[in-house]
Simulated scan of single mutants.
Amino acid sequence: MTLNQTENDPPISELVKLAAGGDRDAFAAVVDAQYDYIFRIAFKWLGDKSDAEDVTQNVVIKLAKSIQQFDGRSQFSSWLYRIALNAVRDHQRASNRQGRNVVALSLVSPTSAPSNQEDDVTMNEVWSAVRQLPEKQRDAVLMVYGEDMSHADCATIMGCKESTVSWYVHEAKKSLKGLL
Rank of each mutant, 00 (worst) to 15 (best):
Q98F: 10
A140K: 00
A52V: 07
A84K: 09
V126H: 04
F39N: 10
S66H: 02
G21P: 08
N101A: 15
D32C: 07
V88Q: 04
I83H: 00
V102E: 11
M149E: 06
I67N: 01
V31I: 13
S128P: 03
G178W: 07
K17T: 07
Q34L: 10
L142V: 14
N8Y: 02
D51S: 15
I83G: 03
A42M: 07
A29S: 09
D51K: 14
S77E: 10
A20Y: 01
W127P: 03
L176N: 01
D54W: 05
A87M: 04
P114R: 00
S74H: 02
I61Q: 08
S74W: 01
M1T: 10
I41C: 03
V144W: 01
F76D: 04
Q92E: 15
I61N: 05
D139C: 02
Q98E: 15
V130K: 04
D54C: 12
W45T: 10
S106L: 11
K62P: 03
N58A: 13
S77G: 01
A29D: 06
P110A: 11
R82E: 06
N58Q: 13
V55P: 06
Q57E: 12
R24A: 14
A64H: 11
R82N: 05
N96Q: 15
V103H: 14
M143H: 05
L142F: 08
F76T: 03
Q34A: 11
D25Q: 14
P10Q: 04
N8A: 09
L63T: 10
R97I: 11
